[in-house]
C-alpha cells in the first residue's frame, strides 16, 4: 500500500521560466509526471519532496542554490536522485555535486536523451 501511494513524481526547480517550461514539456512528451518550482524554497514549502523520485535542479538561483537544496534534503534524510543543470558548470562544482550524491551534472544546452535516461534510471531505482 505504502509504495503504491508514493507517486513517482519528477520535480523541476529552476528560476528561469523558459527552462522550466521546456523541461516540463519534455517530460510531458515522454509521459512522465512532472511538477515545476521557481525556487528551492517553493519546492521545500510544497511538501512534495517526500513524493519526489527524481529532482532536476538548476545550480545558481536567487536564494537557495541547487547545491544548498541538495545538502538540505540530505540533512533531512530525504535524499532524492538529483540531476543538476547549469549554464556554466566548472569541474570543481561538478565534483562537489557528484560527491554529494548527484546522479548527473549537465551543462546547457544539454542532450535530452541523456537527461531522460538519467530520469528513468532514477525513477526505476
Amino acid at each position: 500500500m505504502a509504495t503504491e501511494a508514493k507517486i513517482k513524481l519528477v520535480a523541476i526547480v529552476d528560476d528561469d521560466e523558459l527552462m522550466r517550461g521546456a523541461l516540463q514539456g519534455l517530460l510531458k512528451a515522454v509521459g512522465l509526471p512532472a511538477q515545476a518550482f521557481a525556487s528551492a524554497e517553493d519546492f521545500l514549502k510544497s511538501g512534495l519532496q517526500h513524493k519526489t523520485a527524481c529532482l532536476i535542479a538548476d545550480i545558481r538561483m536567487p536564494g537557495m542554490s541547487g547545491l544548498e537544496l541538495q545538502a538540505k534534503l540530505n540533512s533531512e534524510r530525504c535524499s532524492i536522485p538529483t540531476i543538476f543543470i547549469t549554464a556554466h558548470g566548472d569541474a570543481k562544482m561538478r565534483m562537489q555535486a557528484l560527491r554529494a550524491g548527484a546522479t548527473e551534472f549537465l551543462t546547457k544546452p544539454f542532450d535530452d536523451e541523456i537527461l531522460l535516461e538519467n530520469v528513468r534510471a532514477a525513477l526505476e531505482s
Binding site: D16, L18, M19, G21, A22, L23, G25, L26, K28, A29, V30, R60, I85, A87, H88, K108, P109, F110, D112
Partner: peptide
Amino acid sequence: ASLAHEVNQPIGAAVTDANTCLRW
C-alpha cells in the same frame, strides 16, 4: 560570465523545446 548565462539560458531552453517538438 553573466552574459554567457543570459544567452545560454534561452538557447538551452530552445534546444530542449525543439527536441520535445520532434518527439511529439
